[in-house]
Simulated scan of single mutants.
Amino acid sequence: MEQYQKYIQINPNIRFGKPCIAGTRIAVQDILGWLASGMNNEEILEDFPELTTDQIRAALAFAADSERRTRLLAA
């Protein structure tokens, strides 16, 4: 997803500045945790009807982009 930025916001007053889905208090970290625990998109959408499939994809794209920008520094 190339345009994930329109779905993700970072506000120091919401969830201590964690990246969240715009207009919600649902953090990217929450979505990643649900997916890692075995929930699928349909289960997440059922539990959190305010989310969309595009927002879940945006959370994954944000995490992938963050990982891509991470560099390992040799000790």
Rank of each mutant, 00 (worst) to 15 (best):
L35D: 00
L35K: 09
K6E: 15
Q55E: 10
A58N: 06
T24D: 08
T52E: 11
E42P: 02
L73V: 12
L32S: 09
L32D: 07
E46Y: 14
G33P: 07
R15F: 03
I10C: 09
T24G: 04
P19M: 03
N41C: 01
E42S: 08
A63K: 14
E2M: 11
K18E: 14
G17Y: 03
R69T: 08
D54A: 13
I44A: 01
W34V: 04
P12C: 08
C20V: 15
M1T: 05
I10N: 07
G17C: 02
D47F: 10
E67I: 09
D54G: 11
L51P: 03
Y4S: 06
A27P: 00
A22H: 15
I56W: 03
I56N: 00
E46C: 09
I8Y: 10
G17M: 04
D65F: 03
T70N: 01
Q9E: 14
A63P: 05
A64V: 08
R25P: 04
N11I: 05
R25T: 15
E46R: 15
F62P: 00
L72K: 15
M1I: 08
T53G: 05
R15H: 08
Q55R: 07
A36G: 10
T70P: 00
D54S: 14
C20D: 05
A58L: 02
A22S: 13
S66E: 14
